[in-house]
Structures are given as structure tokens and as C-alpha cells.
Amino acid sequence: MHWAREVPGPAYPERTTEMDRQAMETPWLAKRPVSALRPGDHGWLAYSGLEERDRVIGPFVREGLETTEKVVYVTDAPPDRLPGLGSGHRIDVDAHRRTGALRVISLRDACLDRHGDFEPARMVDTLGREVGEAFDQGFRAVRITTDHSWLVNGPRRSDLGQVLGCEHRVGDTVSPSTMAMAICQIDRRACSPAELIALRDTHEVLVEVNPEFDDGILKIVRTFEPDGLRVEGELDAARHAVFAEQLSQVNTGRGRVHLDFSRLAFIDLGGLHLLAKHATLRPGGEPLVLDHLSPHVENVIEMVGWHRLPGLVRGGDEGPRPGSGGVG
């Protein structure tokens, strides 16, 4: 076992830890975009749809293979159907499998007993073995991922206590490692909110999509439930164009678009006008919903007048909302 050995190759730059509302309630949780994941991270992704899953796991898998790290994917899905590996990604799946950089391991081989039931100890052993081999093969890091949805929902569902126990042991081995990082996936509709919270809390890192834009002043992150954007930092004329572009990307679908403004510290009048302009272009006349406005930003909007900004409506209050990152 080589979980905690020195890593060959270039070191990862210093990690950034980002606190958010959920992280503040649960201080052991850090939230990181997928590309900021580092060895030692035992990450959690509760996805609300395949687009969200693919936009997290896709880069996780691809970046690993592109930087000669090892990728271990425990799944029964065919390799060319996995996120980041399908057609259009120009990744030679077979070549990577031959060199051992890509390991797609079936559930039966990874974590099931003779009767086809989940056996947590086997999962832990399998992952330990894969990491050990990766070290011997000279990979500088191992990226591990699997989807747990089948464990909590479906014909082969397992006892939640068993799953939690397994997660704790995986966490105990990944967290001190200087080589291994993992993302445990789950379809957030696969189990109850209470089960989701229990599972989430066995992880230290919430993984989310990479931001669409981040220059240190303004950060724009795609959100999936609800559909929209989280806008952080300060928005003024210097960044109207990039914001308008991102807004038009999510402005195309039907249904309401939500903008999470909980961490928006400043928006200028031109920004408000831009929002109103986009709202009037929404298909079906659905408004743009502004969620979690800070009191300062809301005060400015009220002074200008909501009625002067047609198509914008005030959404949820500051504070945790049902369905926020990681919890169904």
C-alpha cells in the first residue's frame, strides 16, 4: 500500500478552499470546482442530471488522462459511454486501457461478493490495490470515481449503514494520501434528502462544475438545480460582455432561469439593465429569478424600483435552500 508516499512529478499548486453557505453550516465541507481537486480529496457530487454529471466527471477523467495520471472508474457502463470518453473527446480509450492509465472495473470485479451483493471491504481493497499499482507504474496520481446511485436505489440496493461504512473507510484512505483523489457520484433523485445528507457528510469536499468565467473579480458558475448561474464578486461595465454571453447560454431553454446572487457583492446599473433586457427576451415570458440577494444589492434594486426592471423577480431568501449543493 502506498497511499501516503511522496508523489513523483510536479506538485499540485496550493489548493484553494472556498466556503459557501453549506460549507458554513458544515465546516468540514469545502467546495471546489472539479479542476481544483487535489490528491487527498474525497469528493462528493450529487448531480441533478446527466449534463451536470458529465460536466464534472468529464473533466475529471479527461484531465487525468491528459496529464498522465491514472483514472479508475468503477462501473458497468461500457468505457466509450463514460463521461469525457465518448465520441467527440478525441481520447483513445483503448490505448489508455492498454497502458493501464485507464482502468474501467466492473462492479462484480470491484465490490460484489459471490452472491452479487455489495461488499464494502472488497471495494476498499480494490481501490487500495489500484492505487498501489499506480505508484509502481510511476503515475503521479490516481483519480477514482464511481456512481453510488445503484447502492441506494434499485434491485441491488444495499443497507445505508454499509454504504456509509464503506465511504468512511474510503475517506480514511484517500484523505491522508498524496496520490489518490476520488469523486463519489450519486443521482440526487436516487434517495431521500436525509440519506443524501448522511452520505454527503462522509466526504470532505463538494465537487462542482468548473466556473464558466473567473478572473478574480467576477466568477460565473453554471447551476443545474435550479437551472441558471451563480454570480459571485462584482459586476460592472468591464465585465458586462462576458456576463451577457453566459446569460444567453442559459437563456435558451424553457422554464425559469435562476441567478444565485448570494455572493454577488456589487452590480452596477448597466448590469441591472442588462438583466432586464435579457428577461424580456426569455422564451415564454418566464421571468429571471434573482435568488439570495444580499441586503445591499436588494436595497439598490428597491431604490431603482422592481417595476422599472420588468421580467426580474425576487426569488428565495438568503440562507440555505432546499436542494442546495449535495442535498436533494
Binding site: 460592472d236 456589487f266 452590480i267 452596477d268 446599473l269 445591499h296 444589492v297 436595497n299 439598490v300 431604490m303
Partner: peptide, 8 residues
């Protein structure tokens, strides 16, 4: 905040 919006 109003000052910052106005001066911007």
C-alpha cells in the same frame, strides 16, 4: 452601496 453604484 448606493454611493458605490452611483459613483460607478
Amino acid at each position: 452601496q448606493r454611493l458605490l453604484v452611483a459613483v460607478t
